[in-house]
Design a binder for these strands. Structure first.
Lengths: 113, 113
DNA sequence: TAAACATTTCGATGAATATAGAAATGTTAT
DNA sequence: ATAACATTTCTATATTCATCGAAATGTTTA
């Protein structure tokens, strides 16, 4: 039950839902997400560690960047049950649409320097 | 998005998950749930108001008792997506099984007086 | 090697939350 | 009516959590 609670806690936060919805568009580094969210880098990094600890996302190091991705290949029934639902949900949300729009022009080589 | 966050927050608590899994067995009054959970009445009542506010359950007054039930007829896509998943999940969880066992002998006319 | 950069970790702070007990509300039964 | 009972609301407390800035870590580039 603890793993499910951890997942629901991770999902019960606006910033983290916005992160997940952005990652369902494409993989992102921390600075790209920070730009869209308008939060401190350390805050975003903390949110990412909570999502990762819950098993919802994973990260791969790419030089000085860290790429985060949705964990669609999870072996957890909780995760594989929830992620598809989330991909249908919130697509008409104003904030989520604004984030998606911003993402179109947010690339690490321009943003993070 | 706020309604979804409210739902995930409601689901991200052990006591409230136990309550939902009990209510998926049968409708219950507060004192029956209090007995199984081992929490103060006011605490359980508070949990129930959070679940109700999220739209996951509803209540019907029955004399001096209040019967709580799972809101399977919800018009929220979030609720109708999540409740079926939850009915498959946690059935092998030790705590959930113990709660179900206790429920078999927990009836308001014997417990609450 | 040294400077620049992306990210994480640490420390502090204010807000949200789970909990319990007491008081309040409303119903039933004597 | 009054006592007993189920539940909710109120008040207080201890813990958890979101957030930020600063320091630490590790990589790239000049």
């Amino acid at each position: 039950m603890d793993s499910l609670i951890k997942i629901f806690k991770a999902l019960g936060d606006k910033s983290r839902l916005r992160i997940l919805k952005m990652l369902q568009i494409r993989q992102l580094c921390v600075c790209e997400m920070t730009t869209v969210l308008g939060l401190a880098t350390s805050t975003v990094s903390n949110h990412l560690s909570i999502l990762k600890e819950a098993g919802l996302i994973f990260d791969i190091k790419d030089g000085k960047w860290v790429d985060y991705s949705i964990n669609t290949q999870s072996s957890s029934l909780f995760i594989t049950g929830l992620l598809p639902l989330l991909s249908f949900w919130l697509n008409d949300d104003e904030q989520i649409q604004m984030d998606a729009e911003k993402l179109k022009t947010a690339y690490r080589n321009e943003l993070c320097r």
